[in-house]
Design a protein around this nucleic acid. Structure first.
Lengths: 254, 254
DNA sequence: CCAAAAGTGTTATGTCTACACCCATGA
DNA sequence: TCATGGGTGTAGACATAACACTTTTGG
């Protein structure tokens, strides 16, 4: 209304060197399964502000790299992992004052890892740890900056993507059993899924997962050896597993 | 691997004033229905670079405002509309060289408007126009910067959100007929939906839409007057309308 | 042999699709 | 009264959830 015809271009007489300067950082929420629970990797801050507090790893974007490249670089620097099972941008955060030092806009990425062993070892052991997301979300562990919100948004994204994409296979190994895959859904959603029906859905002829012909060896408590599968066609929308509805009979369609 | 224990914090001896400086802009993809087709609002650039080309509206983020506030401000400046039916962030773009002048990271927003009349009038008429998204996507209209990709991503986002959220009601007026709402799905998805089944799904007792008791008057060609509804409970995931599957009988579950 | 875990079968119930049919209006 | 679009009914096909049952292992 006030200054029309602005567009992205500058008004007449504009000097390109006069724009509000921001630092742009790329922060990565690194999630993995551990002990049947969803965990997030945190690093301890060694310098002010928020010195000594836990934070998600991240760093400044370089002018010569893309955002995706910056995320990949940060992930490698923090975990020693060259490539995550999944690395996807999910939001940007730019509230004034979110960093007391300067104007910072952060582009947030979600990384999903399957190998938990040796991840933390890739960094200074005292400076990195894997904590259950529940601890980070309920305030048991206080996070620096607005990282609590960023982690919350990342987990919410995972919850949604479990139903819509093949993201679940990013949490398990290159080959996996039905029980392992099902455990991802059950841990993130906090529900119980019927094993028989789960198998039928993802194991249908459509190829959501592909049998390898091999079998896992049973645990020490016995039991039939489970079939091993590998990830099949990655669905991009409308996967086979749906979040369970209110199973309160009759009413309540969805 | 190389510089461990970096975290978002700087290494020892870091000077907060020494970070790569970026300009941060907020660009808005403004979508609306017009003549039963999805349209996007474009502005003509008055200055280099890309002078004379069409672009999506946007501008620099100010250090004192949030990203959401910046998007709202840009929308108001370009359209004169105080508040869109929907305004949501959907991505960040920071490839090197995407702006030849300087290092720019753009946070992209999707805006959905229902009132098409007077929108373009709110700006300099010669500098703003409403074009079918098909024209912007197939290259018939060449866009400045990487705006073609941004528009493509925005439209893809709408396609997905139609199935998952109540975004469809953002395209229609405060009250609307079933046919109007259905037309949004049909235009964006490029499919035909059965009117009877559509009505049953969104009109169920669950209250996706709420009858107002009033009726629209029929067009000049006659026909039974349609009921008028208003938006009910906004579903955030798993709405009543699903993208039609391959209806080729039997096989092909999803 | 028994317990445990994987995998298969079965069935009542719910949901969806397609299409026939009725309703209210303009000309 | 006819054409046009809105709105309702319904039957067969399909999908789902729950759980009983079989298989294969360790101890």
């Amino acid at each position: 209304m006030t200054t029309k015809t602005r567009s992205q271009a500058a008004p007449e007489g504009y000097d390109p060197s006069k724009f509000p300067a921001f630092a742009v950082t790329v922060d990565v929420v690194i999630l993995t399964m551990s002990e049947s629970r969803l965990h997030v990797l945190l690093v301890r801050r060694g310098v002010p502000p928020f010195q000594g507090m836990w934070a998600i790893p991240g760093g400044f974007k370089r002018p010569t790299e893309t955002l995706d490249e910056a995320a990949k670089r940060e992930l490698a620097e923090e975990t020693g992992v060259d490539s995550a099972s999944l690395l996807a941008q999910f939001g940007a955060y730019g509230d004034p004052g979110r960093d007391p030092r300067m104007n910072v806009v952060t582009v947030a990425y979600l990384a999903v890892l399957r190998e938990v062993a040796g991840i933390v070892a890739g960094t200074d052991a005292a400076a990195a740890t894997l904590v259950p997301v529940s601890a980070a979300l309920n305030g048991a562990i206080e996070l620096a900056f607005d990282h609590a919100r960023i982690v919350r948004d990342a987990v919410e994204r995972v919850r949604i993507d479990l139903e819509l994409t093949g993201i679940a296979t990013a949490f398990v190994g290159p080959t996996f059993t039905m029980a392992e895959l099902r455990a991802v859904y059950e841990a993130v959603w906090g529900v119980h899924l019927d094993g028989a029906n789960f198998r039928r859905r993802v194991g249908g002829e459509d190829g959501w997962v592909i049998p390898t012909g091999r079998r896992a060896r049973p645990g020490s408590t016995g039991g039939k050896p489970a079939e091993l599968f590998r990830a099949g066609r990655l669905w991009k929308q409308g996967g086979p597993i749906r979040y369970p509805q209110t199973t309160d009979k009759g009413k309540g369609k969805r």
